[in-house]
């Protein structure tokens, strides 16, 4: 049989399609141009004395403080403290939320009994629980980790349910027609198709975690990036506050980018599947 691709579509070799490479340089430049403009304007305004340095320190001042804090290890110490909490909390979430999500997705009764209560709990911002958690678990690490678990539980749990319940019945039927064993069915149909949703949940959960953690540290902590902000406020060092706030943003961005990268590596087919281009 002759090998030919039909004329319906341009016959790209598939490898070309996969590495469709947007020009990272220009898109990157566009993304950086605006903040750069803001920073330059801000610096100029500071030097001209238009803004009060106490309210809004100049970018150059913030940068100096940043370098100082890097040198004396202050930033690293606080950031590490936050990240350790985040890791513990997030691992606990994954350990409970994913199996519970699978259980809830597979059994209707579980959903009926539990989901109204969960929908209610979901409405409460994790920070609102902090005083109670402190009362119950003490002011040490446990209460902060509890906040993190609370913040990330719902996205992970709900997306896992979604993943388990939204397996394409056509693929299940195909598996049946080709006589897959129950084990193969789980391995080849259920897990990969739930994985996509679970990963979305993990990403959402992790960014929720990060935000809730900083909130918790603002309220009661002696270490952590949030406590650094309080320290800056108490010592009347706005440059320190800015360094901490910007670090929070950057660290969050790094975490999310890392997960996105992992997602693309683990599931190269995912994007096309989500956009409905499945075959």
């Amino acid at each position: 049989m002759p090998l030919h691709d039909e004329n319906s579509r341009p016959a790209y070799p598939p490898m070309l399609i996969r590495n469709k490479n947007p020009n990272y340089l220009t898109t990157g430049l566009k993304g950086i141009a605006f903040p750069l403009f803001v920073i330059v304007f801000w610096e100029l305004a500071s030097r001209a004395g238009v803004v009060n340095a106490y309210f809004l320190p100049a970018p150059s001042r913030i940068y100096e403080t940043f370098v100082d804090m890097l040198r004396n290890g202050l930033l690293a110490r606080h950031l590490l403290a936050s990240i350790v909490r985040l890791t513990y909390g997030f691992l606990i979430t994954v350990f409970f939320a994913v199996p519970m999500g699978i259980l809830a997705g597979k059994t209707r009764t579980f959903r009926l009994w539990v989901s109204p209560m969960l929908s209610f709990l979901q409405q409460i911002p994790p920070i609102a629980w902090i005083p109670i958690f402190i009362l119950w678990l003490g002011i040490e690490e446990a209460s902060k980790i509890a906040v993190i678990v609370y913040a990330s539980f719902f996205p992970v749990f709900l997306n896992t349910i979604q993943g388990v319940t939204s397996v394409d019945p056509k693929l299940v039927e195909t598996g049946r027609a080709y006589m897959l064993s129950p084990l193969e069915m789980i391995r080849k149909v259920y897990i990969p198709s739930a994985m996509m949703f679970i990963f979305v949940g993990l990403r959402l959960g992790l960014s929720n975690c990060w935000r809730a953690l900083v909130g918790a540290e603002l309220i009661a902590a002696s270490t952590g990036i949030g406590s650094l902000i309080i320290e800056g406020r108490q010592l009347a060092q706005p440059d320190k506050i800015f360094v901490a706030v910007l670090t929070i943003g950057l660290a969050g961005l790094c975490i999310d980018t890392g997960l996105k990268y992992l997602e693309n590596r683990l599931m190269p087919w995912e994007k096309a599947y989500q956009s409905g281009e499945q075959r």
């Binding site: 090998l3 691709d5 598939p14 087919w269 096309a272 599947y273 499945q278 075959r279």
Partner: peptide
């Protein structure tokens, strides 16, 4: 070989055209 997809054996379904997918 019979359906002419040997060069595309490592490709994922979303990288195939409709006809190629049906051949697979």
């Amino acid at each position: 070989d019979l359906v002419g997809l040997t060069p595309f054996r490592k490709a994922y379904p979303h990288e195939l055209s409709g006809g190629m997918a049906q051949r697979a």
